[in-house]
Computed example of a mutant assay.
Amino acid sequence: MDEAVTTPPTFKRSFSERIYCVEFSPYEWSQHLICIALAKEIVVGTVRFQDEDDAVEDMAYSPIRTFHHDARPHAIAWSPETSLSIVPKIVTFCIAGSDFKIRLYNSNLNDVNMFEILEGHKDYMNAISYEPEGELLASVSDDHTCKLWAVKENQKCVSTFYLTSPGTSVCWHNEESGKLLVAEKNGLIRMYNVRSHQAIMSLDSGVVPLTAADWGPNPLKVASIAAGELLLWDVSRPSRPLDERTLHVEGGLTVKISHANENLVSSIGWPDNLLKVVNLKSKVVVLCGKVKLIGGMTWHYKLPYVCAGSDRELCFWRINVN
């Protein structure tokens, strides 16, 4: 695909302020929920597409609740406890802020709206992630640590892993309890057993800076972006990447594997804030979009939509996979 040819979003929604991050809920039972973080407000809403609901014309976005936030948001994580199909409803998520604090929000969308503050990091956090059981939250920071928080008990930090450089990404194994992936800016990606505190595997990209990594629906596949290069790993053969390709000649910022299709990987990088989606099977860039100011990137749980914040707009691209 010609780099200069960019595809406009399939759908867009405008907001009154700049969007800093966005996250679809990554769980089947709450897949319609989206969290949009503005400078001082967190908006939780639902998104439905015509692909799944014929009553919807194109796309329907409905805000549900707005929460106040005291600092510029850096990252969002949805709790697996979130569900609108039970009574009372539960909406639970965390926001990592520029004041080095994590705020844990709990709401029943009625009379209960609480938040707790998790403190302990000494520098900016780059990523946060709930374990699939919802008991622990992991966070990584520029302070060279990965911390685990007991979000259901006392919101205290229960464990700290000391890193060799700033932590850029953190993800949990979606099938095996207690396995955690931590990516560092110096190119190292380590898997830890959080129960034994042991590193069980490490991958070395050999390229710096490593700005992001992701663990997809297939736990054998890890994708990372380092200095604009997309690296794909098979963790059963960790000695070297399966595939390497330069996607962003001036560097990449973020990378995400689609929840619905393990062969689709999206990234955003420079120049021009280009959002690219690569089909790993055909090894082709199947979409090249563009955002104004980078405000996060997220995949829908089930449908082939990637969403990105673009200054004051939320942009959705539908990926056509043959």
Rank of each mutant, 00 (worst) to 15 (best):
M1E: 11
D2R: 12
A4M: 07
P8N: 09
Y20W: 15
S25N: 13
Y27M: 00
W29F: 09
L38A: 07
V43T: 10
E52A: 15
A55V: 12
V56P: 04
V56S: 06
M59L: 14
A60D: 07
F67E: 05
F67S: 06
I76R: 04
V87Q: 08
V91I: 11
C94L: 09
C94F: 03
I95D: 00
A96L: 05
L104K: 01
Y105P: 05
F115R: 14
I117C: 11
H121A: 07
K122C: 09
D123S: 14
Y124M: 14
K152A: 09
N154F: 05
Q155R: 15
V158K: 15
V158E: 07
F161N: 13
T164C: 10
T168D: 07
V170F: 08
E184I: 02
K185Y: 13
I189M: 00
N193Q: 02
L203I: 01
L203K: 01
V207Q: 08
P209Y: 14
A213T: 00
P219Q: 09
L220M: 13
I225R: 10
A226Y: 03
L230R: 01
S236T: 06
S236A: 08
R240T: 11
R240S: 15
T246M: 13
V249Q: 08
V277E: 01
V278L: 12
N279D: 15
L280H: 03
S282W: 03
K292C: 03
M297A: 07
V306Y: 00
G309S: 10
N322D: 15
